[in-house]
Design a protein around this nucleic acid. Sequence first.
DNA 1: TAGATTGTTAATCGATTAACAATC
DNA 2: TAGATTGTTAATCGATTAACAATC
Lengths: 234, 234
Amino acid sequence: MPVNVGIPQPSLRRLPIYYRQLEAALEAGDAYVSSDELGKAANVPGAQVRKDLSYLAEEGRPGVGYNAKKLAGHLEEFLGLVNDKEAMLVGVGNLGRALISYPGFERYGLQIVALFDQDPAKLGLNIAGRKVLPMNKLEDLARRLHIQMGIITVPADAAQAVADHMLAGGITVIWNFAPCTLSLPDNILVKNEDLAAELATLSHHIAHRHEEHTKETLEAVSLRGDGSTQVREE
Amino acid sequence: MPVNVGIPQPSLRRLPIYYRQLEAALEAGDAYVSSDELGKAANVPGAQVRKDLSYLAEEGRPGVGYNAKKLAGHLEEFLGLVNDKEAMLVGVGNLGRALISYPGFERYGLQIVALFDQDPAKLGLNIAGRKVLPMNKLEDLARRLHIQMGIITVPADAAQAVADHMLAGGITVIWNFAPCTLSLPDNILVKNEDLAAELATLSHHIAHRHEEHTKETLEAVSLRGDGSTQVREE
DNA sequence: TAGATTGTTAATCGATTAACAATC
DNA sequence: TAGATTGTTAATCGATTAACAATC
């Protein structure tokens, strides 16, 4: 019987939020932070935070809290933020360009080292200091540079072909912003960032606002992590 | 005791994926689609699909499947894609501009009717046919136009102030792309789209690829919906 | 009829939370 | 010592899945 020994996904998704809270605490000069304070940022009770941190064997001081600096360091380590992650991005449309210069990525160790596009009109363009290359260079370059991650920001109907090129170049992690499901072998890690689908869930909540009541009183659903929704409806 | 009578969030997040699969089936000329086919797109078994669809009282035909056209229509209705959703967007940086012209939004009923920015240099700019307005116009305009949704694409340190303006203007749904947690009253629906946090979870998987084994054999974790990760590791 | 697929139940699995002794 | 907060257990809650009679 297979047994997963890693951290549960919901817990993992909360860690970056705790990390951010710790940075804020450090900036404010706090040396210790309690599980309840960390929990507020992620909309979970302190007990959940303590459980989450227990997966990385973090030890807090009873009566005091967690050492902010130490915990922040452990989280950086656990989340691999200290490691360099080199990525290629395919599709330099509006969304692709936005990601290329997204300020949060570099801080978290992500380097987008090469850009590609199918459109001949875009080839050779210089975007944030990087030249847009033709697709037929992707496979070879990915292999030579040992690139781990591919970011897909092309229209849905082109995404599968792009993913296939990436695989052929030895890429094993794909961050897919195209609104579609990719067919890929099981050893490839795929993360879908599907804005249209997210919009659809928001749309549902708007349409059904007044039906989705609870039977007695206030409800508090919190769906952080995973894209993360805080839905609190009466 | 409060009892939530709505559809579970994980189910809700899968519906847009089923919907997309149905569109593809219709385009291919299929009149009926089975739960297993729909499930493939979302990486869940057919039983899960049938359960999900049971929340919207959908009826399939045993031995045949679901009527693709009818089900697609029901999903559009249930997800509120047929309704117009008017939104204001604050922060016309790279990400903001990308969202303004994101092709998937209009198809799902989202109209971004006004743009705002704090930067005087950006005021008056014309982006996709809409002028960038100063922040001090937001509250009044939101109220006058009865805007439901606010999209935040400003840096983290400006996001809370923007959200407060939106509330003051009567906005009740906030789609927050700033990497931070907003403090808002419980009757406001907040969806966080936190790309840096998502990157951190990917980063973790990359860093721990070879530790996160299962005890016996292959593992298949599927975390669609919510941003959606398909992690399949040995 | 035989084959396929549904809707639903019951079992399983996994995450959240309350509670509390231990400890700073 | 008194107050605060931890780590962990056990109870609860909720989602997934297997199984199968019903039905096209």
